[in-house]
Computed example of a mutant assay.
Amino acid sequence: MWKSKDVYYISGNTGILAKDMGKALLCQFPEISFNEELIPFIRSESQARRALDKILQQSNGRYPLVFSTLLSIKLNQIFDTPEVEFLNIIDHFLVTLEDLLEAKAIREPGTSRHLDDNTMTRRVNAIHYSIAHDDGTGTKDYDEADLIIVGVSRSGKTPVSVFIATQMGLKAANYPLVQDDLTSARLPSEIVRNKKRVVGLSTSPQMLHAFREKRYPGSTYANLETCEQELQQSDQIFLKYQIPVVFSNGRSIEETATQVAQELDLKRQPGF
């Protein structure tokens, strides 16, 4: 396991989205120290190559993580090199949209965003709320949430929450069912009083085992029997509190997020 890792957020604009999404994911690894740097406004191949040279020089062969929201295929290809761990945040969703809409994206930075001030404020507030209320943090503020996702550890709560915040402009909190919750079949009062805004997230024992095994191989936490037991206990909690359940196994993040929103009859905020 890495004790520390260099992380770079690259973007054709300010890089706020790349940084916020990257941080939301990296906070799940508190035992690792991350050295983070934002490199914004990459608009040309020469700028991309200079940025890559800087990244490789500073990281000195330690395979840095590079989170990208660059829209240009050519620019992303420059960074998609064996010397770095490259994570293209935008492209997966953009390619999917091209297929669905039967049209080609223009892939030009900055065109969004002729967003009005209210829309931009909603997006920033939703992202910040999602990050600040990830993994059971800040339960006292759950009254402000548009939705609260509840599920066992590693069931996919964080990426779904981040997607809902960034792509729908909704304040999404998520809460992990810890052992005390599972054995007592009880939810915290902050969740119970907001039950109408709660969705349970579940998966198959095999999928949960696979995710946990990658993180903690050979542990009791990752054991298939443990996964089966925790999912059964979470099902009992969802049934007890009459909480709707969405299954993430076999679905993409966007599919899961959409179903979560549909369960609560939530709509995208204007401008999204």
Rank of each mutant, 00 (worst) to 15 (best):
G61M: 09
E225C: 08
Q232I: 07
Q58A: 14
G250Q: 02
V178F: 01
E225I: 12
M207Q: 07
K157F: 04
S189T: 03
L100K: 13
L65W: 01
P109I: 07
G271P: 10
H209R: 08
F34C: 08
D146P: 04
A132E: 14
I237Q: 06
L52S: 00
S46G: 02
E108G: 06
L147T: 14
K140S: 13
E255S: 08
G12A: 12
T183E: 15
S153H: 11
R212G: 09
R186L: 11
P270M: 07
S153W: 14
S248A: 15
Y142I: 09
K23H: 13
S68V: 01
Y63G: 10
S72C: 06
K140Q: 12
F247D: 05
K74P: 00
T158V: 11
I131P: 02
N13M: 15
V198A: 01
L87D: 01
E230M: 10
L71F: 13
L266W: 11
D117M: 15
L71A: 14
D20T: 13
I191R: 01
E83F: 08
V178W: 03
L56Y: 12
T14S: 15
G61Y: 02
Y9Q: 10
I16P: 05
D146M: 04
T203E: 09
H92C: 09
A172D: 03
Y175L: 09
L264H: 02
T183Y: 09
Y175F: 07
F67N: 02
H209G: 08
K267M: 06
A222S: 14
G169I: 06
E190I: 09
K267V: 04
S202A: 14
Q233L: 14
S204H: 11
R268S: 10
A165C: 12
T137W: 12
E45F: 00
L101I: 10
V246Q: 01
N88P: 02
P40G: 03
L17D: 09
Q206Y: 15
F86A: 00
Q259W: 08
I73T: 05
I237P: 00
E83K: 07
V124W: 04
L97C: 10
H128K: 10
G15L: 11
P109R: 06
V199C: 03
F29W: 12
L231N: 01
V246N: 02
V152F: 13
P64I: 04
Q179R: 04
K5V: 10
M21D: 08
L26R: 07
K54R: 13
T137Q: 15
R123I: 00
P109L: 08
P40K: 12
L266H: 06
E263I: 03
C227T: 09
Q167C: 04
L264V: 06
V66K: 03
N194V: 04
V124H: 05
F93P: 04
V199Y: 02
A103L: 15
Y221I: 13
R50W: 07
I32G: 02
E255C: 04
G138Q: 05
G138N: 11
I149R: 03
R43T: 15
R193N: 14
K3R: 14
L201S: 01
V7H: 02
K54M: 08
L201Y: 01
Y63D: 10
S33E: 11
T96V: 11
D141A: 12
T81L: 01
L187F: 08
M120D: 09
V124R: 03
Y216Q: 06
